[in-house]
Computed example of a mutant assay.
Amino acid sequence: MRGALIGCGFFAQNHLNAWRDMRAEGIELVAVCDIDPVKAKAAADTFGVPRHYTDPQTLFESEQLDFVDIATRMETHHDLVCLAVRHGVRTIVQKPFASDWQQCVSMVETARAARVPLAVHENFRFQAPMQAVREVLASGAIGAPTWGRFAFRTGFDVYKTQPYFHQDKKLAILDVGIHVLDLARVFLGEVRHLSCETQQRNPRNVGEDTATMLLRHTSGAVSLVECTYEARQIPDSFPQTLVTIEGETGSIKVHEDFRMVVTSGNEVSERSIGSPLLPWTQAPWHVAQESVLLTQRAIIAAWRAGREAETSGADNLNTYALVDAAYAAAESGRAVAPEVWRGETIAVASVRR
């Protein structure tokens, strides 16, 4: 499969490394694109990509692509996704999906009408620790989950590499809370309604840097979802999401040291569920970095099998709807039911390359 990457900034370096790791799996990154010609050329030179561009239109007109990976700021996603879909190119787009719900729906419906697969790079659910939790839940060891806590709390200086965070009117929920909300719905099911309290603890921030959300799932389960960039805890668990899930017959608890403790009936077991260090990853980022590779592999595998990706655009609408509901709940002081998309998913032709 021949692919291209649009956006060669800070986090895109992980995408580039991951695509390079997938060369042995039949993936060839043939072009990169960035509005900054220096970044585009540097990415091409560093990762051995044959061609680089500064204009996405020129990229699509010049290359024969099986897929494109869009790793730009969310304000550009709608136009870039629609451009890729018009050229019939399978598309992966970084989260957040878009700036608002209507743009998200527009992209999903545009891709559906054109029968072009669209996936969102929602990578937290593919982190090695979260995959381990999913395995335990699937085994039935704790019975049906009834309660959960999902917490991403850090004081790590995320502003150093992403200084624009200070100016974002929507910060913690839209940037990292979206990941944690996604985990809550993956583990406990879709959400009936949620309430939310936000805080602005850093005076330099325009938007909220802390959010505490309470979710009632359609299954009857209840979960607490927390996210903050202003925690003051030692040790700092960055960039881990700490998880506790209680079920009918047991529980799962993920600790800061990557220990997962499982209680099943009267039996207790524990094991390490951390991510391995790859040649291009480094602690403490390695958990998030490896998940980029695992996410890309999962999306490509689904497309090759003729399926929509697990993190399809349609699936991500259910996560994005929770983000919108959280902001509405924080503003109103009331529980809010998330939007529901009534469209249909698309049939995906298998990749023959």
Rank of each mutant, 00 (worst) to 15 (best):
347 A>M: 09
150 F>W: 13
133 V>R: 03
281 T>R: 11
51 R>C: 04
124 F>H: 03
187 F>C: 13
250 G>N: 09
11 F>T: 11
151 A>K: 11
24 A>L: 14
321 A>Q: 07
285 W>N: 06
170 K>A: 01
263 T>E: 07
67 F>N: 00
232 R>E: 08
193 H>K: 11
98 A>R: 02
97 F>E: 12
93 V>R: 00
13 Q>E: 02
247 G>N: 06
35 I>P: 00
155 G>H: 09
308 E>S: 03
48 G>K: 09
14 N>A: 14
177 G>P: 03
41 K>M: 01
70 I>L: 06
277 L>P: 04
157 D>S: 05
219 S>M: 05
266 N>Q: 08
2 R>P: 05
211 A>H: 08
66 D>L: 03
77 H>Q: 15
148 G>W: 12
153 R>L: 10
272 S>L: 07
316 N>C: 13
34 D>M: 04
312 S>I: 00
225 V>S: 08
279 P>Y: 03
38 V>C: 05
102 Q>P: 10
59 L>N: 06
199 Q>M: 12
150 F>Q: 11
106 S>T: 13
89 V>E: 00
118 L>P: 02
237 S>V: 13
61 E>T: 08
273 I>W: 01
71 A>T: 02
145 P>M: 15
130 M>T: 11
180 V>L: 09
128 A>K: 10
129 P>N: 15
251 S>W: 15
196 C>D: 08
37 P>H: 11
151 A>Q: 09
306 G>E: 14
294 L>S: 05
43 A>T: 05
231 A>C: 13
63 E>G: 05
211 A>I: 06
104 C>M: 11
203 P>T: 14
198 T>K: 08
298 A>P: 12
218 T>V: 12
172 A>T: 09
140 G>Y: 10
103 Q>P: 01
277 L>C: 07
77 H>I: 10
203 P>D: 13
246 E>Q: 13
65 L>N: 01
90 R>F: 04
303 W>S: 02
158 V>I: 06
101 W>I: 12
163 P>F: 03
114 A>R: 15
111 A>I: 04
4 A>M: 00
342 R>C: 08
57 Q>F: 11
114 A>S: 10
262 V>H: 11
207 G>Y: 11
240 Q>Y: 12
111 A>L: 05
336 V>Q: 04
290 E>S: 04
167 Q>K: 10
332 S>I: 09
341 W>G: 07
209 D>E: 02
313 G>Y: 05
340 V>R: 15
324 D>I: 12
244 T>W: 15
272 S>G: 03
161 T>D: 10
352 R>Y: 12
171 L>M: 15
194 L>R: 14
94 Q>E: 07
132 A>M: 05
138 A>H: 06
